[in-house]
Structure formats: structure tokens, C-alpha cells
Amino acid sequence: MPNPVPILSVIIVAYKSRTEIEACLASIPRRIDDRAVEVAVVDNYPADGTSTFVRENFAHVRVIDPPGNVGFGKANNLGFAATTGECVLFLNPDTVCNETALTALVNRAQTEDNLGVISPRLVQADGSMDLACRRSLPTAWDGFCRASGLAARWSRTKWFAGYNLTHLPEDETYDVGAINGAFMLGRRAVFNQVAAPTRHAVFDEAFFMYGDDLDLCARIGRAGYRVVYDGRYDTVHLKGQSVARDYDAMSTAIFDANRDVYLKHFAPHVFARWKWQLMFGLWKRVALWRARRRGHQRVRPV
């Protein structure tokens, strides 16, 4: 008798995503290993017609309309509470999946008990790797190396490239500190175990848009599960399509969110809080200064 529980729930948070969500939804298979795949779209900006388009063209997709833009984390939590799949994939609307990768990663999540969350290699439109799909939890030294340019200059040296792990091969699989919120796949049981105090709150809703993926990976690691990158499979990530193009504002928000992750997890006393506030503040200012000098082409916050 077929298992009535979907093998996978795909949760997509949309924000001004009308032009990109069609390719994303069309790339998601309806079944994996002869079990259903359910899809839910949580639309944080229905004014652009995304919800209407999805309802008219993808009848099998559940559309959730929150009361306004509730943020990335809360919208994902709404989708999580509304779905039932054995595995869950939190997916950005500016991605294009492939069945081979999804099947392989779902099978790994199902069979590796200590696997908490996994991501494939995310490939951008120009063919380059989205570096945020495999990274460590950043240290003060990592911040200095990135802000100063040492990480870019010595990208193949472990000592300087510890954050984006560019010294490691792209096409292999290994444990990392964190993966990108654009693609996070794991078992529902694991997400339930590490959920924030509010029921079904997998993502900490204190993080409105950035930092929530880093926070979730930190909680998964602390619970004893592995955060895994599998570069043997890839997914297209048209990074930046669904967020504002204002580099300074976006970068500032990312730096501040990552600082707040560290204040939450790694600042047990007031001196530690001062340290992380100072380090992330300096990292942000130097990185933005270098980016302005280079026309915002070379320095990235994540």
C-alpha cells in the first residue's frame, strides 16, 4: 500500500517573485520514489500577482497569503505548519531544481540518522558557485580576512579562506558549519526537534530576513546533527532576483543579522557581546568601504 504521507514538502517564500517563480515551480517533480511531493508558496507580496499566477497555473500548489510581509522566517514557519511531508525543503523562488539532485538529497536525509540539513552546490546564472551554500560559522579572524581582502587573495589557503571554505573542492561532499537559506533540506523530525519555543517555529522569527539560516544551522549543530554540503549535485540559484538591489542597505542588513546570531549563540556575558558588536561593526564598515572603491563588484557580505 502506498505511503500516504508526502516524501517531501517544498516551502517557498515569495516576495516580488512573479517573474521567477514559474521556472522554480515547474522544476519541482510531483513525485519522488513513487511518493507525493507537496509544495506550498507563502506570498509576502501578493500585490505583484504572484499568488494569482500560482493559483491559476499550478493548481497542485498550496498558496498561503499572510497578513502583509511577515518576514522570511515567519513565512517559512507558516509553510512548515501547513505541510506534512516526511522531509522538508526550504527553497527560494529564484532557484531551478532538478529531480536527480532532489532525489539524492532526500534519500540521504532519510537514511543518515545524524544528518540534520543538507544543500547541493548552488550555481549562479553565470556558472559560478554561490559561496554561501557552504560556509563555516564565522569567527573574528574570518571577518578580518574577508574585510581586508585576504580571503579573496588567498582563496585556496585554509588559514585565510575559513568562512567560505574555498580551499575545499566544490564537487565533493563534507560537513560544514552552515548552508544557504535558499536551499535547506532535512527531515521534519529534526526540524521539530530544534524548533524555537513556539510550536512549529523552525526559524527564529526575531530574524526578519537575514541571519535566520545561520541561526538554524547553529541550532542543528548544537543538537548533535550534521550540516552537510553535497557538491556532487547542483541547483541553479539566480541569486539576488527577489531582494532589493540596494547593495549598501542589503549588506548592512546581512552584517547586522549575522552579528545578532553571534550575540544569541556566542555571547554568554557582556564582554563577549561587546567583542562581537565591535568585530561585526568593523567588518561591515571596512567591507562596504572596499566595495564602494570597486564599484560593488568584488566584496560580498555572504
Rank of each mutant, 00 (worst) to 15 (best):
Leu185Val: 02
Arg222Ala: 09
Arg62Ala: 15
Asp142His: 11
His269Glu: 15
Val61Asp: 15
Gly68Ile: 00
Cys133Asp: 04
His237Pro: 08
Val61Ala: 14
Gly281Trp: 08
Lys239Gly: 08
Asn69Ile: 01
Asp215Arg: 01
Leu89Gly: 12
Pro67Val: 09
Asp43Lys: 12
Phe208Val: 15
Val61Lys: 13
Leu8Val: 05
Phe191Val: 01
Gly186Leu: 10
Arg290Gln: 14
Arg135Thr: 13
Phe255Cys: 10
Val42Lys: 12
Ala161Thr: 13
Lys239Ser: 11
Cys145Ser: 11
Ala23Gln: 07
Asp126Met: 01
Phe72Cys: 13
Arg188Val: 08
Glu172Ala: 07
Ile11Val: 13
Thr95Ala: 09
Ala218Leu: 06
Ile7Pro: 00
Asp204Trp: 02
Ala125His: 00
Asp113Glu: 13
Leu131Ser: 07
Gly177His: 01
Arg153Ile: 04
Leu165Gln: 15
Ser128Phe: 06
Ser251Ile: 00
Asp175Val: 06
Gln277Cys: 04
Arg55Phe: 02
Gln241Asn: 03
Lys158Ile: 01
Leu185Gln: 06
Thr166Cys: 13
Phe266Trp: 11
Tyr45Asn: 02
Arg259Cys: 13
Met129Tyr: 03
Cys133His: 05
Asp48Trp: 13
Gly116Lys: 12
Ala249Leu: 06
Ile21Pro: 01
Cys145Phe: 06
Asn192Ile: 03
